[in-house]
């Protein structure tokens, strides 16, 4: 197997069982233990089972609290060092207006991070602004969102090699029952 460096699963907004029955089977097959070193979860697991599932995937699991998470012990936000990158992680409902990059930029400055990961909108995105990478894994279950996002299950996999990151964005196409992947690469200090 090629050396991808450290693999980081970025996943969130499962909303099971409130908004979705399950993660698509095609995804489940991909999300197996002993492949990833880190899991960064934007929250809204909502149940212990989902939490346990993530914990089985990788040795390092970081979860922040989503707006529908009841677990009081989950942090609102946190930062994690992976490779040369300081990664900020939060659910995103705390940043208003929801999904606004300018607002998120304030958060990125506050967390002093190179990459800011947030969810909540249920729309996966990888964006660069003012030297910061903003990553949104979307909802892995394609959970409903009243703002019009969702419907397309998605997650993101980061391959971190020192100062380089390859970002794979997986989207599930329900009509075709297939998984589509797009790829973005970036380096620190670009």
């Amino acid at each position: 197997m090629a050396n991808f460096g450290e693999l980081v699963l970025v996943i969130g907004d499962l909303h099971m069982p409130q908004r979705a029955a399950d993660i698509p089977a095609k995804f489940k097959k991909m999300l197996v233990p002993n492949k990833m070193q880190h899991v960064l979860c934007t929250g809204n697991l909502t149940t212990r089972e989902s939490h346990d599932m993530l914990r089985n995937l990788a040795p390092n699991v970081h979860v922040v609290r989503g707006d529908f998470d009841d677990q009081q012990n989950l942090p609102e936000q946190k930062t994690v060092m992976i490779g040369a990158f300081k990664i900020g992680l939060l659910h995103g409902h705390q940043v208003v207006p929801w999904g606004s990059l300018s607002a998120l930029a304030m958060k990125a400055r506050a967390l002093d991070c190179d990459i800011l990961i947030s969810g909540h909108t249920h729309e996966s995105a990888v964006t660069r602004k003012d030297g910061i990478w903003y990553i949104n894994p979307g909802s892995v279950t394609g959970a409903y969102s009243p703002t019009g996002g969702g419907d397309v299950p998605s997650f993101i996999l980061l391959a971190v090699q020192g100062e380089k990151v390859v970002c794979y964005c997986y989207k599930y196409n329900e009509a075709k029952d297939s998984v589509e992947v797009s790829k973005t690469e970036f380096s620190k200090g670009e």
Binding site: P17, Q18, T47
Partner: peptide, 11 residues
């Protein structure tokens, strides 16, 4: 767990 199952049924 049971109620979670029932909840999933809705979907």
């Amino acid at each position: 767990e049971e109620q979670t199952l029932v909840a999933r049924l809705v979907h």
